[in-house]
Design a binder for these strands. Structure first.
Lengths: 285, 285
DNA sequence: GAGGACTGTTGACCAGTATCAAAGACCACG
DNA sequence: CGTGGTCTTTGATACTGGTCAACAGTCCTC
């Protein structure tokens, strides 16, 4: 399902897909409103201090989407030894801030995050939203300090992947090293697509692309693709898309008038995905 | 000199600096109009077929800026064995295209490149410009196909770093692995800053930030920081900055009227860098 | 369940940038 | 060294999205 940036892929699927998932994984079709992560993955080991929990890649329902993707299950136990702990982050709390020492990557296990960069003169830009199975913190490797703020938009849980150990294990276990590189490379491609969006698209095209992207990511997770709750505000969507909140709101209203989506506050239903795709590339209709 | 994204760094240096260089390296102050790469680095080994040349990291004047950065000279010979060849790319030719099989990273040895992404509906976005010492191709790791077109904007030369070998050597030699990760992470941070630029800045602020960024990168290379030749057209600058070429041209004209720069076609002189920095964050003056 | 604060919607107006157009400068090539 | 084509500049105009404002809805807390 890797459609990213193939020249002749239909419409703007390039922008819509930024997870190159394993298989469709049709068996796990659950509503995004219920969190099945906890239920389907028994907590192994005892609770650790202050909201930290034991983790285990080998039994994690998200393993195909996360760092272990493509690594044989038998080898995953090496990872389990390293990914010793999880951490809970309440809605509104930060997982890390700009300037914090970089020690680990984080894998979202449940919940929803935003990452934000703030310039010295006070501009904010949201650089991404992260849903379960996605990774946080790569921007910190270069300087050994985190380069963004990571903030939970709902009560969340992350696996802590201590970076030094990750590198050490990757050294002895080539597929992991390769997978790490692939995940970082995928992040670079994702950002290329955001640059394309910010650099070339009109407001409504951006909003349509944003909705399709979220939908696609939920689908990969095994959630419903055409009905979801936005965890972020209009202002946060706007920050991500380089628009003001009013413009985002107007785009939603217009799509709703056109019968393409239904938007009741944060609850979004995509009624006509094909039409939404056309809206992304409306500039030559 | 890593100023990237520290919260209280002055003005928008965050955007301006995207190379975390080693030391100021004041000894190598040369004009960008002369290419000293060839002269200072003897060509070792014989010429290979069709524009390919032998390469050697250990004697390369760019080694501190490139993959070998931070790696002890004695160890560099391992890299030399791998970076077997160089390749010449004439102005206007492509180094690789979207969809090409990804086999190697490329290090710019001399010349100037742009990387470009094209969406399925025909939009173009320039995702970066690369000058000597910078790397190309990381976006290809994820899918084993290149995700951008890389096009030489002047006659150029690159070192070919076969990716499989790079991973293999990195496995046996931890500092190289770490350096690879750092370089990819740096690319992610660079793109965060471009997103900030595209998402929050006005036209003139973008152009000012662009000029400061180029200047800073030339300075790190040991070239003059306040006088350089733009290798790209106004339209290419516009594509990178999410602007139309006329808007870029008007910004140049206005800066010139204000005495901040001098622009004679592609030759740019920065007359007042401090003022240029203020222009980047003019939104609250 | 009431009050307050945050979040979202909508309208009117305006600023900034795109678009269209035309002329001038520059460059590469024969 | 002249010529065609590309690149750049500048002006006039149109239009998108930003800004400001008022109000409505929603959620959270007490």
């Amino acid at each position: 399902m890797v459609l990213l940036l193939r020249r002749h892929s239909e419409l703007l699927l390039t922008i819509v897909n930024d997870i190159s998932a394993a298989e469709p994984d049709a068996g796990r079709s659950v509503s995004p409103y219920t969190d099945n992560t906890m239920a389907s993955s028994p907590i192994q080991g005892k609770l650790l201090a202050s909201g930290s929990l034991a983790a285990a890649c080998s039994t994690c329902s998200l393993r195909e989407l996360c760092v272990p993707g493509g690594i044989p299950v038998v080898e995953l136990e090496k990872l389990d030894a390293m990914v010793a702990t999880r951490r809970r982050v309440k809605r509104g709390e930060t997982l890390f801030n700009v300037g914090d020492e970089f020690r680990a990557l984080f894998a979202v296990r449940s919940g929803f995050f935003k990452t934000r960069i703030t310039s010295s003169d006070g501009r904010d830009q949201i650089t991404g939203f992260q849903i379960p199975g996605e990774l946080l913190g790569f921007e910190g490797v270069a300087t050994e300090q985190h380069g963004v703020d990571a903030i939970a938009l709902e009560d969340s849980e992350v696996c802590i992947l201590p970076y030094g150990e990750l590198e050490r294990i990757a050294r002895d276990f080539q597929p992991l090293q390769h997978q790490l590189h692939r995940v970082m490379s995928r992040e670079i491609m994702r950002e290329h697509n955001v640059m394309l969006l910010l650099g070339t698209m009109k407001a409504e095209e951006r909003v349509a692309a944003f909705l399709l992207n979220l939908s696609e990511r939920y689908r990969h997770l095994g959630y419903a693709a055409n009905e979801f709750i936005l965890r972020m505000t209009r202002q946060e969507i706007g920050s991500y898309l380089g628009l003001k909140l009013e413009t985002v709101s107007r785009a939603f209203s217009k799509f709703q008038e056109q019968g393409v989506i239904e938007a009741q506050g944060k609850k979004i239903t995509l009624l006509d995905i094909e039409q939404l795709r056309k809206l992304v590339s409306s500039h030559k209709n």
